[in-house]
């Protein structure tokens, strides 16, 4: 699993093995280690950096408050992402209510979100093609439902396993697979139709 390769220290794996909740003082280390991943997931979900930052803070605060309730049944990242997903659900609900109050959002456009690309592509033509592909994926992701988007992002950006996504989302593995299949099909359609 690629997600584990991005986690230095693997403190969560140690805690899983001991099945003991870590000390409260260790939360600093947890926040330092997992914050970037939580922020990345929330940023890709909302496309709003400020909102993602706020939700990341809320997530870590909530995790800190409930730290003693974590018993190591899942990885720390899975537990944190579950909190983040619930916060995001609340935020979606609030945004739907705020829509009627003409509240605007700071989310960037999908075309702007697609501009971020590391300069790995060797030639300018490859860079342009890669940027175009990224924009198409963003457009497809934009059209997905909230649940499908989360599952797609957890699988293809955070590279989590189906079982972990199911644990984080509070769904069965079968449901996750079905949503992921539909989401991937939509993205494939978008890419196939435009290419």
């Amino acid at each position: 699993m690629a997600a584990t390769t991005t986690m230095p220290g693997h403190i969560s794996e140690q805690w899983m093995a001991t099945k003991e909740a870590p000390d409260r003082a260790d939360f600093d280390q947890v926040a330092r280690e997992y914050r970037p991943q939580i922020f990345r997931f929330l940023l890709s979900s909302t496309r709003d950096a400020e909102l993602a930052e706020t939700l990341t803070q809320d997530c870590l605060m909530k995790a800190y408050r409930n730290w003693n309730s974590f018993r190591g049944d899942s990885r720390v990242l899975t537990w944190l992402l579950r909190i983040a997903i619930n916060l995001q659900k609340d935020q979606w609900r609030n945004r739907r209510l705020q829509f009627w109050r003409q509240t605007t959002t700071n989310a960037v456009d999908v075309s702007e979100a697609g501009n971020w690309l590391p300069s790995e592509a060797s030639t300018p033509e490859q860079q342009v093609a890669a940027r175009q592909q990224v924009k198409l994926v963003w457009q497809a992701v934009e059209k997905l439902s909230g649940r499908q988007r989360s599952i797609f992002l957890l699988r293809h950006v955070e590279e989590m396993e189906i079982a972990e996504i199911a644990a984080a989302m509070g769904l069965s593995e079968g449901t996750v697979k079905a949503h992921l299949s539909r989401a991937t099909g939509r993205v494939r359609e978008e890419l196939g139709g435009r290419q």
Binding site: P36, R40, L43, S44, E53, W116, P118, V134, H156
Partner: peptide, 22 residues
């Protein structure tokens, strides 16, 4: 498809790192 997903992942990671630094 795989290439597009990979580029998408790299794009999100780059964007996230940039925003976190900001």
């Amino acid at each position: 498809m795989e290439q597009a997903i990979r580029s998408f992942r790299q794009s999100v990671t780059a964007w996230s790192e940039k925003e976190a630094a900001r």
